[in-house]
């Protein structure tokens, strides 16, 4: 006798909570061969706005946490993912049509990416910062700081779990908070990841995940004055030049689209940081 399974309701993740879209809209997510999987929330511009508010309010706390602390929080995400490997393998197989070994490889790579980035949290300042020998009696130090609220269009074609790690981890490890638009066609991994985040030590609002149509939501995020930067990693199939033009209105920092999941890199970490240089006079008397 087989047990009747209990399907999951897939919702948005905003400010540490799991609301449905305020619009009440959903869209159907199915397997590669067309079988119904779930009704995912179809986020609206108002959901995006709420997510930005949540990200902004989480910024002060998250950005002032110590690097050691943020590093541990990121590592904790890897630990929890490790414990839910099977669930993610199943979801990836279903949504992306991957073989089990391929899905497993993606999950493992994603976990390793979280670990790699976790280790940077208390080191990137040393590598990207600088003590400056100026010609005068001054202490002069340059340190990178998080840019602020970063909107991210997650990779859209495949890599629905790895893609998230590749864009979220480098942004948040420095203290940024993010609003992520998940893969439209394969959002289940994103929602499950948000469940992991909710039970990890990541404070609510640091990562906000929207499912739905990037084409619909991205312009609102690109134009939002309280968003400081936008990562167009997964926007290659959108009209991303227009997004960049909209983003220029408030001089947002912009990362251009990439093919697939961006490989782990220090550049990606530093891209959403601002170098702050502090001068102070020096004297014995």
């Amino acid at each position: 006798m087989t047990r009747l399974a209990i399907p999951k309701t897939y919702k948005l993740y905003i400010g540490g909570k799991f609301p449905r879209s305020e619009s009440g809209r959903t869209y159907e997510v199915s397997t590669k061969d067309g079988r119904f999987l779930a009704n995912a929330s179809l986020a609206s511009r108002k959901d995006a706005r709420d997510a930005v508010v949540a990200a902004r309010s989480a910024f002060a706390g998250w950005s002032s946490a110590t690097g050691y602390n943020r590093g541990q929080v990121l590592y904790r995400i890897a630990e929890l993912l490790e414990g839910r490997r099977d669930q993610f393998v199943d979801e990836l197989s279903a949504t992306e049509g991957l073989t089990k070994p391929a899905a497993t490889a993606q999950v493992d790579t994603a976990i390793d990416a979280w670990v790699w980035y976790a280790g940077w949290a208390d080191k990137y300042v040393q590598v990207a910062g600088n003590a400056n020998a100026v010609s005068g009696p001054y202490f002069n130090l340059s340190t990178p700081e998080p840019t602020g609220v970063v909107a991210i269009i997650a990779p859209q074609s495949g890599n629905s779990l790895l893609g998230l790690a590749s864009v979220i981890a480098p942004a948040i490890l420095t203290g940024n908070t993010v609003v992520v638009v998940a893969s439209e066609s394969a959002p289940l991994a994103a929602v499950s990841l948000s469940e992991v985040l909710a039970t990890s030590d990541v404070p609510g609002g640091v990562v906000n995940i929207l499912t739905g149509s990037p084409a619909e939501i991205a312009p609102w995020l690109a134009g939002h004055a309280d968003v400081n930067a936008i990562d167009l990693a997964g926007a290659g199939l959108l009209d991303w030049v227009d997004l960049q033009i909209i983003a220029a209105d408030t001089l947002k920092r912009v990362l251009a689209p990439e093919d697939g999941a961006p490989p782990p890199s220090l550049e990606r970490i530093v891209a959403f940081t601002e170098t702050k240089t502090v001068w102070h006079t020096k004297s014995l008397i």
Binding site: T109, G158, N159, L255, A256, A271
Partner: peptide, 15 residues
Amino acid sequence: AISTTGSTSRKKATS
């Protein structure tokens, strides 16, 4: 250990 799949080229990212 983390060679990502699907990534064939590294674009210069910052604009």
